[in-house]
Write a protein that binds this DNA or RNA. Structure first.
Length: 276
DNA sequence: ACTCGCCTGTCG
DNA sequence: CGACAGGCGAGT
């Protein structure tokens, strides 16, 4: 479940690894992840080339090889990259190999196969259907006024709205819970009921949380096992206030943290610090 | 706006 | 051994 900070951390690590390195060949042991793997086109784009840059948009990564040549990569639930610089037998879920020109390789591992690696050829990547509907980029153009306006049209709980990628791109379960805690807002509050001032505070806390998580290199928990392509773990788990802390005392007021399913997702909050 | 299907590891 | 989480897109 990599969210924006984890995807950013991975993109940064991949940029380091691929800088000045050419991709010799892409191999795959499966025909599909979430989408079909078009090996032929993937190789056509990447073979003997080095990505100009690796960008992130929401939870997507873009490996840009040219104006109209790119790989669109999403890690789904369990996708990760591993940098292999010592001969290592192929793991059961290491589905895609990127062989590099110095004898090292990148492997894409994804037990649940919800990720995607999609070649974009001869169309601007900005227009790809997966990207075109994404909402605001939180670290670039989060706008409380626009959020407040959009929220007027929704009846769903605020926590659920924060996970809607067409509204804000890149937030997932961990950081939505944390931002709501810091803003003092209960996750079940109907979206349309937030005042503009509350949206301004929430937007600030979203930015603050994500920036700190990027600085910490993401969040590594037992159930996500996150590490970047170089095997570095994140540190933000030490700064979590509510996520995964059901029954534990609130770090501010010692009230036990509650967990409630909202929109089908576990939502953690402090009933005292986030009153209705 | 809700439901389903895609998957496998982990938990009860 | 069954239930379930969980992002996203397609279908209703």
């Amino acid at each position: 479940m990599p969210e924006l900070p984890e995807v950013q951390t991975i993109a940064t690590a991949l940029s380091r690894i691929l800088k000045g390195r050419r991709i010799l060949q892409i191999q795959a042991s499966l025909t599909h992840l979430r989408c079909p793997l078009d090996l032929e086109l993937l190789n056509k784009i990447c073979r003997a080339k080095s990505p100009r840059r690796i960008l992130r948009r929401g939870k997507y990564m873009l490996w840009e090889f040219g104006k109209a040549k790119a790989l669109l990569v999403h890690l789904g639930m369990s996708g990760r990259f591993k940098y292999i610089h010592v001969p290592t037998p192929l793991g059961r879920h290491e589905h895609v190999r990127f062989l590099l020109d110095d004898g090292t390789e990148l492997r894409y591992e994804d037990p649940r196969r919800f990720g995607m690696i999609v070649p974009i050829w001869e169309s601007r990547w900005q227009e790809h259907p997966s990207l075109v509907h994404l909402g605001m980029e939180p670290l670039e153009n989060l706008n409380a006024q626009v959020l407040w306006q959009q929220a007027q049209q929704h009846t769903i709980p605020i926590k659920q709205l924060l996970l809607d990628q067409t509204v804000i791109a890149g937030l997932g379960n961990i950081y939505a819970s944390e931002a709501l805690f810091l803003a003092g807002l209960p996750p079940q509050l109907p979206s349309a009921r937030l005042s503009l001032a509350q949206w301004q505070k929430l937007a600030d806390k979203i930015v603050e949380t994500l920036q700190q998580a990027v600085t910490a290199g993401g969040t590594t928990l037992r159930d996500n096992g996150f590490s970047d392509a170089e095997g570095n773990y994140g540190n933000f788990q030490q700064q979590l206030h509510v996520y995964g802390r059901k029954g534990a005392p609130c770090l501010v007021c010692k009230t036990p943290i509650q967990c409630q399913v909202i929109g089908g997702r576990s939502s953690y909050f402090c009933p005292a610090c986030q009153p209705e």
